[in-house]
């Protein structure tokens, strides 16, 4: 009766980080769609970044791409957490590697080309990098118990 279902190691923190990233991307998508300014952005960096030509890739706003990416990441991390399916962990790992490279490029654009920093985008990048670190810990074999 009290039997627990086996869950993927570190799946909880991974899902939490993916959910935080999804929430940030969803908020930035709403801001983009409504044309409003982002809140809690004292330097108004998000307005400048969103107005730059780098905020759109192939006609699609980067905020929407970020939301789509985050939803997929959330799904695979949830699959790892719930079912301990290693393929889901590998998919999450691959997505987080891709995401880390991509947010590194976007951060470079903000600092070196656009000359403005969007705190919401930086927060999103932090969730991706933190997720990568947690996934790196999860993808390694669990240490053997000394008994």
């Amino acid at each position: 009766m009290n039997e627990r279902i086996a869950r993927g190691r570190l799946g909880g923190p991974m899902v939490l980080l993916a959910a935080a990233g999804t929430a940030i991307a969803a908020y930035l998508s709403v801001v983009r769609a409504s044309g409003a300014s982002a809140v809690c952005d004292p330097s108004h960096g998000c307005d400048v970044v969103a107005a730059s030509p780098y905020a759109v890739i192939l006609g699609i706003p980067v905020a929407y791409l970020g939301l789509a990416y985050s939803l997929v990441l959330l799904a695979v991390t949830a699959a790892w957490w719930q079912r301990a399916d290693r393929r889901a962990l590998q998919a999450a790992w691959a997505l987080l590697l891709l995401g880390t490279l991509f947010v590194a490029y976007l951060t470079f654009l903000e600092l070196a080309v656009i000359n403005a920093v969007c705190l919401w985008c930086a927060s999103f990048a932090v969730t991706i990098v933190a997720g990568l670190i947690v996934a790196a810990a999860a993808i390694r074999p669990a240490p053997r118990e000394s008994s």
Binding site: A6, R7, R9, R86, I139, P141, A142, E145
Partner: peptide, 12 residues
């Protein structure tokens, strides 16, 4: 949890 860890080690 131990079973999960064993399976995880096995998969890795």
């Amino acid at each position: 949890r131990r079973a999960a860890e064993r399976r995880d080690r096995y998969d890795a």
